[in-house]
């Protein structure tokens, strides 16, 4: 059968493809993965007491200080994270809307074209993470409000301890960390595939195993301090 050729929309360049969008998502996601690993490690310092925790927060601000001003590194890194977040969410919503437009008539059979468990919660889970991020930043970074009853006195560590003595705060974080774990379970493997590191069946199995480990380490590691505080194991005195 002879086929007609559709006219191309715009110039043909790699930068205008869905695969490029995936690259944006993978690179910004990889930066987040690095960030959450460091962040989780920092949070674990609360097990050493208030002082090491506050000292760590100070270290983040004095990093590279003779070269950069106080807090300079932190602000640069924050700017990078914001750019990454915009790129990540933008590519996510772009691919999401494309997928919706690519099959406007759905299947009658419910089993058809279903996502796997691993990738099931990426989209709504991602939106949940975004909502959580806003709450989390307001609580501990921008407004620094204390929902608990402990004294804070300008100490990051005391604010954390007072907050996580409240059960519903711990619950919010628990739900968010399940969402983060699920996101990383698919995301880390997906990014490996997008970046071209899963070139054989063995490399693919390795990428999927790595994703499982990263997801578990991050979600469990983040949940340890809030749970330890809620159950009175860490009191901070």
């Amino acid at each position: 059968m002879a086929t007609n050729t559709l006219p191309k929309a715009g110039p043909v360049t790699a930068r205008r493809t869905t695969v490029f969008m995936k690259l944006l998502m993978a690179l910004s996601g990889a930066l987040f993965v690095f960030y959450v690993l460091v962040h989780m490690y920092g949070n674990l310092k609360i097990f050493g007491g208030i002082e090491p925790f506050d000292e760590y927060a100070l270290h983040l601000r004095t990093l590279l200080t003779p070269i950069l001003p106080f807090g300079g590194f932190l602000w640069l890194f924050r700017a990078l994270l914001v750019i990454a977040l915009v790129a990540h969410a933008w590519s996510a919503f772009y691919l999401w809307s494309r997928a919706k437009g690519a099959r406007t008539t759905r299947y009658v059979a419910k089993e058809a074209a279903r996502v796997t468990l691993r990738s099931k919660t990426m989209r709504w889970g991602g939106v949940a993470l975004l909502a959580f991020l806003v709450w989390h930043l307001l609580q501990f970074s921008i407004l620094k409000f204390n929902v608990g009853s402990g004294a804070v006195n300008g100490s990051e560590g005391r604010l954390v301890i007072s907050s996580f003595q409240v059960w519903w705060v711990v619950l919010i974080y628990f739900i968010a960390m399940v969402a983060l774990g699920m996101h990383l379970w698919h995301g880390v493997w997906s990014a490996s595939q997008t970046l071209g590191w899963a070139v054989s069946p063995r490399a693919r199995a390795r990428a999927q195993a790595t994703a499982t480990v990263v997801a578990l380490v991050v979600s469990v590691g983040f949940m340890l301090p809030p749970l330890a505080i809620l159950f009175g194991i860490v009191k901070g005195n």
Partner: peptide
Amino acid sequence: DHEGFGGCTNV
């Protein structure tokens, strides 16, 4: 992409 296929999300 121009033909209207969706983007891959490695499912």
